[in-house]
Computed example of a mutant assay.
Amino acid sequence: MGKALIIGCGGVAQVAIHKCCQNSAVFEEICIASRTKSKCDAVKAKLDGGKTKITTAQVDADKVDELVALIQREKPDVVLNLALPYQDLTIMDACLATRTNYVDTANYEPEDTAKFEYKWQWAYRERFEQAGITALLGSGFDPGVTSVFSAYALKHQFDEIHYIDILDCNAGDHGYPFATNFNPEINIREVSANGSYWEDGHWVETKPMEIKRVYDFPEIGEKDMYLLHHEEIESLALNMPGIKRIRFFMTFGQSYLTHLRCLENVGMTSIEPIEYQGMQIVPLQFLKAVLPDPASLGPRTKGKTNIGCIFRGVNDGKEKTYYLYNICDHQACYKETGMQAVAYTTGVPAMIGASMLLSGTWNTPGVHNIEEFDPDPFMAALNKWGLPWKESFHPDLVD
């Protein structure tokens, strides 16, 4: 049906590229672009020979002029941004300049401030509408699938949803004392920031890791989970009528938390530059350089993930609870794509979101969060492309 330009070549991007090649009826051609072209060439070498034509390119995603030149040369129908969240706005600027549809998996955050908000990207709405192109925000798992789950639950199970608890459990074991399952810089910024949740029309802020719950996850068992701020709360609060509260919880093991606390105490998680031997370095960026590359964790990670949403609301005047979730096996994901389940659960929905625009299934000019579209075709695609969902009508509730 068309061509996608994929910017980025980390673990998530590599999963998305694999899936684009599997879905060759939609992705007739892809161009993989990254700051390091050799990474793109290595992925192309693995996947060449199928029905999807693959090309590669070098680009600095911080530079709008380079992005514009690349898009003009490649002429894609959609740009799939799997670079860093710091680069969302430059890529959106390039898409505007070339009138090209845009998809990402994570909202913009300034490099010098650990701030997770949609306001910068929502400010592009009118310009994307006027240009006649679509920007699809947050087409990963959380945000992404969790947002589609919410739209699906509202469409098929509820007249009104009042409470949403988003639960992200990774029970995988990679054998390292401390490592992150996705970009260490983004992961640690997210975890060490203040938590927050939406209740009765306003944000309630908490200290990092202040609120802990234990939950018995299907096929995994009991795990400690902690309340975090997460970006889909912001958009769901606007797009779910009647909502009273939305919370996000993520599981962490004690080894991870102990190491993180120690690193925080000695200043290694700081994003403030310091001078070292006459050079300015950011401690968190240095820490990222010495930690294991998340893309290298695939062969050694065992166990499962369970990510989903528990909904409470009313249907036909009666109280109702409903649980939608997905379970992924790290080793099965690695066998298929060479990446573990955390990359897989983000890369597959990234491909699906791009396919929704490329096929014209979703086509509304402007800047939109993923829950604003009809969830049914996306939900069907999850089952088809490796993220089958399960449902329960009598889940345990989080207190």
Rank of each mutant, 00 (worst) to 15 (best):
D216W: 01
D216I: 04
D216T: 09
F217G: 01
P218M: 03
P218K: 07
E219R: 14
E219M: 01
G221L: 12
E222W: 01
E222M: 06
H229C: 00
E231V: 08
I233F: 00
S235C: 02
N239G: 11
N239C: 07
N239Y: 08
N239P: 05
M240E: 13
G242M: 11
I243T: 04
I243C: 01
K244N: 08
I246A: 08
F249W: 08
S255Q: 14
L257V: 09
L260N: 07
L263D: 03
N265F: 07
N265E: 15
V266F: 14
M268I: 00
T269M: 03
S270Q: 08
P273D: 00
P273Q: 08
P273H: 01
E275S: 14
I281T: 07
P283R: 07
L284N: 00
L287A: 10
L287T: 04
A289L: 13
V290S: 06
P294H: 04
P294W: 10
S296K: 13
L297M: 13
G298T: 06
P299L: 13
R300A: 09
G303K: 07
N306T: 02
I307L: 05
G308H: 10
C309H: 02
I310M: 01
I310K: 02
F311E: 09
F311L: 00
R312L: 12
R312D: 06
G313Q: 05
G313L: 05
D316A: 15
K318T: 02
K320M: 12
T321P: 00
Y323P: 07
L324F: 10
L324S: 06
N326G: 10
I327C: 12
C328F: 09
D329N: 15
Y334C: 14
E336G: 03
E336Y: 04
E336T: 06
E336H: 03
G338N: 11
Q340E: 15
A341Y: 07
A341F: 02
A341C: 12
V342T: 14
Y344Q: 05
Y344L: 00
Y344R: 04
T345E: 11
T346F: 09
V348A: 05
V348C: 09
M351W: 11
